[in-house]
Design a protein around this nucleic acid. Structure first.
Lengths: 125, 125
DNA sequence: GCTATTGTACTAGTCTACTAGTACAACAAC
DNA sequence: GTTGTTGTACTAGTAGACTAGTACAATAGC
């Protein structure tokens, strides 16, 4: 997993990191259980401050996408031991509700979303 | 045409004005040739600075939605506010990436998402 | 326990978006 | 041309977002 920062784009560094992590997960490059670069390592690689990396990781953690464990690192996924099927279902429901809310706010329909999603499925083969 | 500003929303004043003008046009409350409140009048009404109103009007003028004529006022042009298709596509892409990242983190696959989404579509009939 | 590695808190500097104050310029109406 | 109306330019203050420096705390592995 290669990260990069465009210092001239005007997009905040931490936001660029966030987008790249999400993108990698969405495309399957990163998946549940994978370990991300350490805060320090990534900071050095990108020539930015560790706190900036932290900020990105933390925001992703709040969204439930990452999990951090001091001493061992930052990982993809939500490892709460007992996520039963019911809760999983509820979470999916929640995620979809959020999705549709955002989509409709931009004038996008459920069909638009479905079509695009199918296209991604094809592309991922 | 009534304007209002929510000073506590955190949304910039000029942006609130922009949205309200666009909304009014979309609803037909304002239409081609209509005259908007003068910069000064609106500034007084909303207890904001004339320059803030200017900023809103100008941005709308750049989009081709308004036309200003010094000495006589600001008017609604005949250029409907249009939805940028490219922007829309980009937004959808962004939303889907977010969605899949979150879903993956909870151990949900693209297929899970697709299935559930189809179900929603059925249900919405 | 010791050490190395991990993430974290606190603080401060910098830059930009936003807003406002004040003075100016163009046009319409007479 | 004079007057009153309209929009405008220029400047500056303020607040918040962003980033970095430095020192600290928790954990893993031995």
């Amino acid at each position: 997993m290669e990260f990069s920062i465009d210092t001239k784009s005007g997009v905040p560094f931490y936001r660029q990191v966030i987008e790249q992590v999400k993108f990698a997960i969405a495309r399957g490059v990163l998946t549940t259980g994978d370990r991300l670069p350490t805060v320090r390592q990534l900071a050095v690689d990108l020539s930015i401050n560790p706190n900036t990396v932290i900020r990105a990781y933390r925001e992703l953690e709040i969204e439930g996408i990452l999990e951090t464990q001091q001493g061992s690192g930052t990982f993809v996924g939500n490892h709460r031991p007992e996520i039963d099927e019911l809760e999983k279902q509820r979470m999916l429901d929640q995620i979809l509700t959020d999705l549709l809310a955002r989509a409709t706010a931009y004038g996008l329909s459920l069909d638009d979303v479905l079509a695009q999603l199918k296209q991604r499925k094809e592309a991922s083969r």
